[in-house]
Structures are given as structure tokens and as C-alpha cells.
């Protein structure tokens, strides 16, 4: 057999137009600068002032770790953090499983009413949070009333209702992200696996799942972040005595912005950056 190129040649970079529009390019550079500036300047200020030794959030008073130490000693904030992580973990896990199955079902089968189901699936993404929150509040209070009336119980809204609410909107986000990754999934891979003797389960576990895992992880990460972030829906669907971190932070900010808030925000920021980096590393390992 003739010599073959072992590695496919990279596509050649598209030739640039000979005449460049210098002013256009300048404008784009300036635009990029401002975009990054507006994105990252507030973050930088937040992080810097979380180390400021002054009880006013916007005044620099020398370097200190005090706010972080205080933070960890603040029982209410810590409990709110624990609640948030608990809600996010459980709701993300459930929403990822359900959302992935929904996405697989919708991409794999062409069935009657698929288009309308499509629209319904996108609904929680497009309707405003506040509408969703009111809807869920109404739903939970009616449902609880009914149940309490029937069984003589005295159940009230608590973190479980928040979890259910978060699952409800996260399913849509996960399903949308997973569907996007399924669009590039070659279904003939599944036929090839079955042809080689893999039953449905082995096909899913060995072929489909590994190939769409980056999409699933992406969806889960988005869901986790959205759940950690959510104030409106959590505030409407939780009961008295059960605060998530955004609820707790918001109730403090209403009194005054303390550097403690800066500190906890910095920690949340760090956590989400780590999550994103972790998922990136994970995804790049998939297709090593």
C-alpha cells in the first residue's frame, strides 16, 4: 500500500483579506477591552475588599483574613451555605438524571406531539423567575393543604419544596444542554455497538454515555450553579427557618453591606471557578 499520511493535515488557516480595515480592528479591540473590563472589574473589587481591614465594604483599611474567619464562625451563614449545597447537590443529581433521560428520549424517538413537548420543555427557561416562583408557591400551598386535609398531617414548605422547585426548572436546562450534545452524537455508534454484540444496556454504558458525558457534566454544572444562585424561587418556596445562602445574603445586604458578604461571595466565586475548571479537565480527558 502506498504511503499514507498518518495524521490528517490540519485545515489551513483561512487566508486573511489583503486589505485590512485598521479602524474596524481598533474598534473591535477597544470593544473587547471594555467587555472584559465590565465583566471582571467588579469581581476584582469584590475580591480585593474581602481582604480589607475595615468594617465598611467599600473602604480599604489594610490587609486581613478576619472576614473569612468571622464567616466560618457565623453559624447562620454556615447553615445557609450547608442548605444551599444540600439543595444544589440533590436537585442537580435528580434533574441531571431526569433531564438526560428526557433529552435521550426526545432525540432518539420521533413521536407524535414531539414539537409541543419541545415547547413545554423550554417553558421554564423562558418564563420569568418570579412567575415560576408564584406558580410553584401556589402549587405547593394547594398541594400541601390537600395532603394535610386528607391525612391530618401538618406539613409545611421547607428545603424539600425548594429541591422540588429546583428540580423542576433544572430539568429543562439539563435537557437543553444534553440535547445540544446529542445533536453531534452519531447514532450509528449505537448500531455499531449492537452489531458487535452489545445489548441495549452495554451499548448505553460503553458507548452512548461516555460520548455524551461532557454534555451531561456541562448540564449538571449549569444546574448546580443555577441552583446555588437562585434567590427568587427559593425565597418563595422555602418555609420559615430554612434559608439558602442567597436568601441569607440578601437579608443581610438589606441591613448593610459588610465585608463578610464580600468574603462569602469570593468563596462562592472560587467554588464556581473550580467547578468549571474541573469539568474542563474532565471533558478534555474524555477525548484524549
Amino acid at each position: 500500500m502506498a504511503e499514507e499520511t498518518l495524521v490528517r493535515p490540519l485545515p489551513q488557516a483561512a487566508a486573511r483579506p489583503a486589505q485590512r480595515n485598521r479602524w474596524g480592528e481598533r474598534a473591535l479591540q477597544i470593544n473587547a477591552f471594555f467587555a472584559y473590563f465590565f465583566l471582571y472589574a467588579p469581581i476584582a473589587i469584590l475580591v480585593i475588599f474581602s481582604f480589607s481591614n475595615s468594617s465598611f465594604a467599600g473602604v480599604w483599611g489594610g490587609f486581613t483574613f478576619d472576614w473569612y474567619i468571622r464567616l466560618f464562625q457565623n453559624a447562620r451563614l454556615m447553615e445557609a451555605l450547608r442548605n444551599s449545597v444540600y439543595v444544589a447537590l440533590i436537585s442537580t443529581t435528580l434533574a441531571t438524571m431526569i433531564g438526560t433521560l428526557v433529552a435521550l428520549g426526545m432525540e432518539r424517538f420521533r413521536f407524535k406531539g414531539r414539537t409541543s413537548l419541545d415547547a413545554v420543555l423550554y417553558l421554564p427557561i423562558v418564563i420569568p423567575d418570579i412567575v415560576m416562583a408564584v406558580m410553584l408557591l401556589l402549587f405547593f400551598s394547594t398541594a400541601l393543604q390537600l395532603i394535610n386535609g386528607m391525612f391530618g398531617t401538618a406539613m409545611r414548605m421547607n428545603l424539600t419544596t425548594v429541591i422540588i422547585a429546583h428540580v423542576a426548572f433544572n430539568i429543562s436546562f439539563v435537557a437543553v444542554v444534553v440535547r445540544a450534545s446529542l445533536k453531534s452524537f452519531d447514532w450509528r455508534m449505537e448500531e455499531a455497538a449492537q452489531d458487535l454484540g452489545a445489548n441495549e444496556w452495554a451499548t448505553f454504558r460503553r458507548i452512548t454515555l461516555p460520548l455524551i458525558l461532557p454534555g451531561i457534566v456541562g448540564g449538571a454544572l449549569l444546574g448546580f450553579t443555577l441552583s446555588l444562585d437562585d434567590y427568587v424561587i427559593a425565597a418563595f418556596t422555602t418555609g420559615p427557618g430554612f434559608s439558602t445562602l442567597p436568601i441569607e445574603v440578601f437579608s443581610r445586604v438589606r441591613r448593610s453591606i459588610t465585608p463578610e458578604i464580600n468574603a462569602i461571595s469570593t468563596i462562592m466565586l472560587l467554588a464556581s471557578v473550580l467547578l468549571v475548571v474541573a469539568s474542563q479537565i474532565f471533558q478534555s480527558r474524555q477525548h484524549r
Binding site: 452519531d186 450509528r188 455499531a192 455497538a193 449492537q194 458487535l196 445489548n199 460520548l211
Partner: peptide
């Protein structure tokens, strides 16, 4: 009989090799 229980194998036009 489902594909995975048949004594045949297929070479697909698109090759369908597993990329991972």
C-alpha cells in the same frame, strides 16, 4: 432476533469507529 444476538457483523460505510 436483536442485532446483538445474530451471527453476523457489519462494516459500515461511515466506518462508525468508537472515537473514545
Amino acid at each position: 432476533t436483536p442485532p446483538y444476538k445474530r451471527p453476523v457483523n457489519t462494516v459500515f460505510q461511515s466506518y462508525a469507529l468508537f472515537p473514545h
